[in-house]
């Protein structure tokens, strides 16, 4: 994928990006976030740099999902009270975004959904309860956790603008479909749905060096 770049207005470090459309860029130097639009970058806020979490993935990792190639271009790293998760932003060749969720050796390919959910129902969800989403699938709640910190890197399709402290609900269906719901402030929700995918099926390239582990 072609690489374009601009210089960070704060630290002057070069920020490379691959999306032609509007996106969020995180400066690799000072970790400030910018809204990119037509070659200009508008400062958003100071972010936190991602931490070492032993993920085998990195920016630039390439893979395939349902025969469509993609490249990892950004990451949001969540540290929950009891859990952690990476949401890797992936860019498919046809300029479509996806989210590759990674936690404890599980990998899910997700899409952000514009579902309107009843936030008060989401707020009452507990492990073991079921919830039907607007995709007409019945999901069972596997985990409810509170996010504590967000870290970012690379290029993201949008700024989550999430309050750092929010409730995350992980759900699954009978046939390995997955959903993530982030219950944000002011009764807003962000919903991702998708499926579990075994690591090997992605045919990853340009991973971090795994020589001692594979």
């Amino acid at each position: 994928m072609p690489v374009s770049s601009l210089h960070c207005p704060v630290c002057a470090k070069q920020i490379n990006y691959k999306t032609s459309v509007s996106s969020i860029l995180i400066c690799p130097g000072c970790v400030c976030s910018y809204q990119k639009s037509e070659g200009t970058a508008q400062f958003l806020q100071q972010e936190k740099a991602v931490l070492e979490d032993m993920s085998p993935l990195r920016l630039g990792t390439m893979g395939q999902f349902e025969d469509k190639p993609f490249e990892v271009i950004g990451r949001i790293q969540y540290s929950f009270e009891k859990f952690y998760r990476n949401l890797w932003a992936v860019l498919f060749s046809e300029r479509a975004y996806g989210w590759l969720a990674e936690a404890y050796g599980d990998y899910m390919m997700l899409q952000r959904k514009e579902f309107l959910l009843n936030a008060s129902v989401v707020a009452k969800l507990k492990a073991g309860r079921t919830l039907e989403l607007p995709d007409n699938k019945s999901y069972e709640v596997e985990r409810v956790d509170i996010n504590e910190t967000i870290y970012m890197e690379g290029e993201l399709p949008e700024h989550s603008k999430e309050n750092i402290r929010f409730t995350s609900v992980e759900l699954s269906t009978d046939n390995h479909q997955k959903a993530l719901i982030h219950l944000l402030a002011h009764y807003k929700t962000t919903v991702y749905t998708g499926q579990l995918v075994p690591f090997k099926r992605f045919n990853f390239k340009h991973l971090r060096d795994l020589r001692d582990w594979i």
């Binding site: 740099a49 931490l51 971090r208």
Partner: peptide, 17 residues
């Protein structure tokens, strides 16, 4: 746990001490 910077994206690190 917080506190360990991502020092290299090339290789997986040895355990933190």
């Amino acid at each position: 746990m917080t506190g360990f910077k991502l020092t290299s994206t090339e290789t997986l690190p040895s355990p933190a001490v």
